[in-house]
Every structure is written in structure tokens, then in C-alpha cells.
């Protein structure tokens, strides 16, 4: 925030740097949330496919997290964490909530992937002598991934955008930085356009790479 110590009120190159830095923070918290949340989500998805009892109880919990708006989860968690003795800064609190949020969505995607592979295919794999993990690694993973990859990309892009909500905890990511600059410069349209362009620049490589990958698989 050193850059804002110059009390220049128009939009300057420094401000662009400031937004760029904030975009990196958006990227950082999103990449962490997406990668950790995806790993957890995959295991949750596996658990969902194990038994009906697990699917029901776990499924209900996941439904709760998916139906309560992220912004409410963020505020609740940030304010309740100190009560249970967790001293978290906005980044940590935001990251934890985003990870949980991502895992809930990825869990459903993963379950869809496992179902797409299907019991008969897995029995065929097991009948060849593969153990549970070999079946997962060499059959369920590659086949299921191809089936639900577009859905996973959708979740990832969603998390990237939804990470903007972490700004209400005071973490200065792209949206928060834009708000700060807008208050100072009063140039809302310009700054929001730049912020939008940054979001696009962060998302586009993901969609581009995803499409390429899907094309390669479909050959």
C-alpha cells in the first residue's frame, strides 16, 4: 500500500501496479483454494460413492455448504473463529472458507466422474487383478476425469471469481484494491474495467488450456 502514500488523486501507473499486485493475490488465494479444495473434494467424492449411508450424511453436509451464500460463510467463520480460539488473519480465514467451498463443489463433480466410469467398468478392472488403488489410478481417474473435466473447470473459474468476496474480510485482492482506488480517484468505470480485464486475463488461460486438453482427449 506504499503506492497510495502519494496523495495524487488521478489514476496513475502506480495504481496499475497496485491492481496488478492485487490480481496476483486473487490468483494466489484462488490457486491455493482450487488445488487444496480439489484434492479434498476428490476424496469426499470417493467417500460419497462408497456407501449409501455415507452418501446421505456427507451429502447433506455438503448441501448445506453449497446452499449458504459464500459471503455469509465468510462473515460467520471470520467472526466465530476467534471464539473457538483460532486467531486468523483475513487471508487465512478467507482461504479456509474458500477451500471448504471448493471441496463441496468438487466432491459432487468427482462423484459424477466416478459414476460416469460405472460399476461394470470397475468390475472388469478388478477382474484383471487390479487392486482398489490401481483401479482408481489407471481406470477411474483417467476415464472419470475426461467425463467431468469441463464441470471441474467451471468450478475452478467460479472460485476464481467468487474469491472477490474475501474482500469483505479486508483482504486486499483485486476487488478490494479496486474499491480502494475508486474511493480515491473517483474513476469507477476505468478502474472496474481494468479489474475486469485482470479477471479475464486470469481466467482465459484456464479456459484456453482446458479446451485444448479436451480436444486432445477427444481424438
Amino acid at each position: 500500500m506504499e503506492s497510495s502514500s502519494t496523495y495524487f488523486s488521478g489514476f496513475s501507473l502506480n495504481d496499475l501496479w497496485y491492481l496488478g499486485e492485487a490480481a496476483l493475490r486473487t490468483l494466489w488465494i484462488s490457486v491455493l483454494a482450487i488445488s487444496i479444495g480439489s484434492v479434498i473434494g476428490i476424496f469426499l467424492g470417493l467417500a460419497l460413492s462408497v456407501s449409501r449411508v455415507v452418501a446421505f450424511t456427507l451429502g447433506t453436509i455438503l448441501d448445506i455448504f453449497r446452499s449458504v451464500p459464500l459471503i455469509i460463510q465468510l462473515v460467520l467463520f471470520f467472526n466465530f473463529a476467534p471464539i473457538i480460539g483460532l486467531r486468523l488473519n483475513p487471508f487465512e480465514a478467507g482461504l479456509i472458507v474458500l477451500i471448504v467451498y471448493t471441496s463441496c463443489y468438487v466432491a459432487n463433480v468427482a462423484r459424477g466422474g466416478i459414476e460416469a466410469v460405472g460399476q461394470p467398468m470397475r468390475r472388469a478392472a478388478r477382474s484383471l487383478g487390479m487392486n482398489y488403488w490401481q483401479d482408481l489410478r489407471y481406470v477411474v481417474w483417467p476415464i472419470g476425469l475426461r467425463a467431468v473435466f469441463p464441470a471441474w473447470v467451471g468450478v475452478a473459474l467460479g472460485v476464481l471469481k467468487d474469491s472477490a468476496l474475501v474482500s469483505i474480510l479486508g483482504y486486499v485482492e483485486l476487488l478490494k484494491a479496486s474499491q480502494i482506488l475508486m474511493t480515491r480517484t473517483q474513476e469507477a468505470i476505468l478502474i472496474l474495467s481494468i479489474a475486469g480485464a485482470f479477471y479475464f486475463a486470469l481466467s482465459y488461460p484456464i479456459s484456453y488450456y482446458a479446451t485444448r486438453l479436451e480436444q486432445r482427449w477427444s481424438q
Binding site: 467398468m121 472388469a124 478392472a125 477382474s127 484383471l128 487383478g129 487390479m130 483417467p142
Partner: peptide, 30 residues
């Protein structure tokens, strides 16, 4: 199960592998 081959009504070929890789997979990993 390695001593017992099983063929099902649905053929369940692994769609992401070539014909050769389909057959070579189990000998390689199992």
C-alpha cells in the same frame, strides 16, 4: 483373479487407451 479371466456382457474396453495398451495395462501394473 490373475488366474481367472472374466469377460462380461458389456465389453468395458478402457476408452482412453489404445487396443494394445488396453491389453498391456494389467500385465504391466498387476
Amino acid at each position: 483373479r490373475q488366474n481367472m479371466g472374466m469377460v462380461f456382457q458389456q465389453w468395458n474396453s478402457f476408452p482412453h487407451l489404445t487396443v494394445l495398451e488396453n491389453v498391456a495395462l494389467a500385465p504391466r501394473i498387476v
